[in-house]
């Protein structure tokens, strides 16, 4: 005869292993296969001297600002194991002291397939684009790349990217009409 505890133990042990096996199968079979097509267009780019109003870094420094369009259809990333897609636009450049700089300037969480077609027009930066040495004088080119991270209901996190804008020339810092440096602007980052 088996005691109640033994029966309970056997049942829960079997249930746990079955559930773990099923979860592993779900995790392994639901990697996103199709790659979405993305379009990133930069309408305007400028370097200004400013001071962030809400950010912890309150130093006066150079900010690179762009206005950009994004058009991406992420619906192919949604399958039955997709919890959300974190889509973000990364600005990438190299400078004198840093061989690669990456900074997220815009992001969005997409939770439903119905919202997966993301169209953004003439968007400004959500996060200020700063440089470690406070200046973009030593930066020649910047590239905006759209990337995404598929977060599953259970299983492995997957990442992907689509090279959006090509390499874009960074202009020199904006000066006043008389050629003198302008007063640092208040920036609402």
């Amino acid at each position: 005869m088996h005691s109640t505890v033994q029966r309970f133990n056997a049942v829960t042990a079997l249930a746990t292993s079955v559930i773990l096996c099923l979860l592993a199968m779900v995790g392994f079979t639901s990697f996103p296969i199709h790659k979405p097509n993305a379009n990133v267009l930069v309408n305007d780019i400028k370097v200004i001297s400013g001071r962030a109003q809400w950010h912890m870094d309150r130093r006066t420094q150079d900010f690179l600002e762009t206005r950009f369009d994004v058009d991406v259809d992420l619906s192919s990333l949604f399958n039955w194991n997709t919890k959300q897609v974190f889509v973000y636009l990364s600005a990438e450049y190299d400078s004198k002291d840093h061989e690669l700089n990456q900074a997220v300037i815009w992001d969005r969480i997409v939770r439903r397939k119905e919202d997966a077609h993301v169209v953004i027009k003439d968007q400004t930066h959500k996060y200020g684009l700063r440089s470690v040495n406070k200046s973009f004088d030593d930066v020649n080119n910047v590239t905006l790349t759209l990337k995404w991270n598929v977060m599953p209901k259970v299983g492995w996190l997957t990442f992907g990217d689509e090279r959006g804008s090509g390499s874009i020339r960074v202009p020199s810092k904006q000066l006043g009409s008389d050629g003198a440096a302008v007063k640092p602007q208040r920036l609402y980052y």
Binding site: F86, D97, H98, E99, L100, N101, Q102, A103, V104, D107, I109, Y127, V132
Partner: peptide, 19 residues
């Protein structure tokens, strides 16, 4: 959300943010 690969030290400067 930000990363800077230093040439001189090979280290990385990392800035993070909770979603």
């Amino acid at each position: 959300i930000e990363i800077h690969d230093e040439i001189s030290t090979g280290d990385q400067l990392i800035l993070t943010k909770g979603d």
